[in-house]
């Protein structure tokens, strides 16, 4: 459905996206994972025919991004990083305008707007000014705008950044509902978000693809150790030394004033050992949890491992 071939983009002399290759098939939900400045937005803008590629090309539903941009625009719904909403319009007026510019035929506009309002849970605020809505609702209006012409493909650029936790959950839920009927590309710099919604991840770093894999494959290939976080009331050097001395410990890092990250081999029942030690020494356990792999960790791993191989 989406085929990207040797896609590169220069901003002036600056190479923002370097030689991307990947495909997305129909019905798939693909996560685009990368830190800020990795080139996610740039790639999405190119796919949506907002920016031209400097080199390479992409085909979407068989249409070429250079030759048939108008067809592509009709098949894609795009939610940019900042929802493209006019703050001085009401939700209703805005969605009708969006429907019209997205090419929905005059007679079908009202129905399309109703459908989008319904899907995004905006019925109650349809007559309100967008500028008066919360950030979460504005994001929903942005999403409704992307859905308005019933596109086959949805491209969502960091749909949950800047929202509070409750709003994030709601938007994620919405996206999960949409996943059953759309092909979705979603960018994010938050790993759990991608792991909740997406089947496959494209990890992009400094404009290049660092890995493409299913989520299980990725975590399996990267998780060679278990990590535990131990937070105690009375943290001191003794804690650090005792943890290091514990049998099977690979490494211990002090995370902050009261927390330590203990790394151990995969599959060892380390939780018990650490807990017993902490109880014996009366450190006062505040938290003992599995330190989930953050995106930064994955990046560090991917980039350093590659470098090691190269050396």
């Amino acid at each position: 459905m989406i085929e990207v071939e040797n896609l590169s983009k220069f901003y002036g002399p600056r190479l923002a996206v370097n030689n991307l290759n990947f495909t997305v098939s129909q019905g798939e939900v693909v996560g685009f994972l990368g830190p800020n400045g990795a080139g996610k937005t740039t790639t999405m803008n190119i796919l949506c025919c907002i920016l031209p590629a400097s080199r390479g090309t992409a085909r979407i539903c068989g249409f070429d991004i250079f030759e048939q941009s108008m067809e592509i625009r009709k098949t894609i719904g795009y939610l940019p990083e900042n929802p493209p909403v006019y703050l001085d319009m009401t939700v209703d007026d805005y969605l009708q305008f969006a429907a019209a510019v997205r090419g929905v035929a005059g007679k079908k506009i009202a129905a399309a707007a109703d459908r989008a309002l319904e899907k995004c849970g905006l019925k109650d605020v349809r007559r309100r000014l967008i500028g008066k809505l919360s950030k979460g609702y504005q994001q929903r209006v942005g999403l409704a705008q992307a859905l308005i012409h019933d596109p086959k493909i949805l491209i969502l650029d960091e749909p949950t950044t800047g929202l509070d936790p409750l709003q994030i959950m709601e938007i994620r839920k919405l996206i999960q509902d949409l996943a059953s009927s759309h092909t979705i590309i979603l960018s994010s710099h938050i790993l759990p978000e991608v792991s909740q919604i997406c089947q496959r991840v494209v990890i992009i770093n400094e404009g290049e693809i660092a890995a493409i894999d299913s989520l299980e494959g990725l975590t399996a290939s990267l998780r060679k150790t278990e990590r535990l976080r131990l937070r105690v009331r009375s943290a001191n050097d003794d804690v650090l030394q005792s943890l290091k001395a514990l049998e099977g410990t690979l490494s211990v890092q002090q995370e902050d004033d009261s927390a330590f990250i203990v790394e151990s081999p995969l599959g060892s029942p380390f939780q018990d050992k650490v807990a017993r030690l902490a109880l014996d020494r009366e450190w006062g356990i505040v938290e003992l949890s599995s330190a989930s792999m953050t995106l930064e960790d994955i990046f560090l791993k991917l980039t350093t491992e590659e470098k090691e191989l190269a050396e």
């Binding site: 907002i50 493209p84 510019v101």
Partner: peptide, 13 residues
């Protein structure tokens, strides 16, 4: 400034 231009640029117009 308001980033609304993306809506127009990504529309089939």
């Amino acid at each position: 400034k308001g980033k609304t231009f993306t809506l127009l640029l990504s529309s089939p117009i």
